[in-house]
Amino acid sequence: MRRFLPNLLRLATLAVLVVFLFRPELFEPLLKPLVQANAPAIYNQGSLLSLTLSHLATVFAATLAATIVAVGLAILVTRPIGAEFLPLSRSLVNIGQTFPPVAVLALAVPAVGFGEKPTLIALFLYGLLPIFENAMTGLSTLPPAIVEAARGTGMTGWQRLTKVELPLALPVVLAGIRLSVTISLATATIGSTVAAKTLGEVIIAGLQSNNLAFVLQGGLVVAVLAVLIYDAFSALERVLARRAGRG
């Protein structure tokens, strides 16, 4: 019963978001006071729904690629064969995170041109770091007793990895993915300055035409998406952590 209220709140937020995306005109009276007399209160240069979907698709594609590469690299550097790479990997992750997302995005443009590509590359590169860091931590801080036990039962290296180590590290890896997704959702809006189709278009259109309602709706949709996704990941982590006996 204690979880009832927050869950109701989440469902209500999701419902409002869905209604807003499918029938934004219903919210016009709410946003009208924010704009000058005859300016539009609802984004009218494209469909909010399709922008939201392409925003999510961009973030999803970048995060998926980042997850595969980051977890693969983390597995490599935590095996004996890749141990020599571990110290440098740690410092590279530290250095990489000092790169501002805008700079990564701007620097990707000369390499690949305008559009979705620089955004995908920036989100991928920037998303790699938290996932890699967490996967590395998760895989290198497993309880030694359990790893020993797995070895004792005669499991091969591959079996230990897939049956013991990865499941145990999963909650920590997920925390990294959650962090990466939240950063990417916000950073993707900046992608619109290099012509990517994301919700940033709505915000930038608002900034350019001094239309506060545009800025608000673009920003709020991204923020609500981020909060809901963050929440869903946290819940998933709790379930997995309980199952893995780490929580």
Binding site: L34, L185, A186, L207, V215, G218, G219, V222, A223
Partner: peptide
């Protein structure tokens, strides 16, 4: 925490008013 999830360009824009 919620403030952190608002994209920077939107937060910058929202403070204009």
């Amino acid at each position: 925490n919620i403030i952190q999830t608002i994209p920077s360009i939107a937060l910058f824009g929202l403070l204009i008013a």
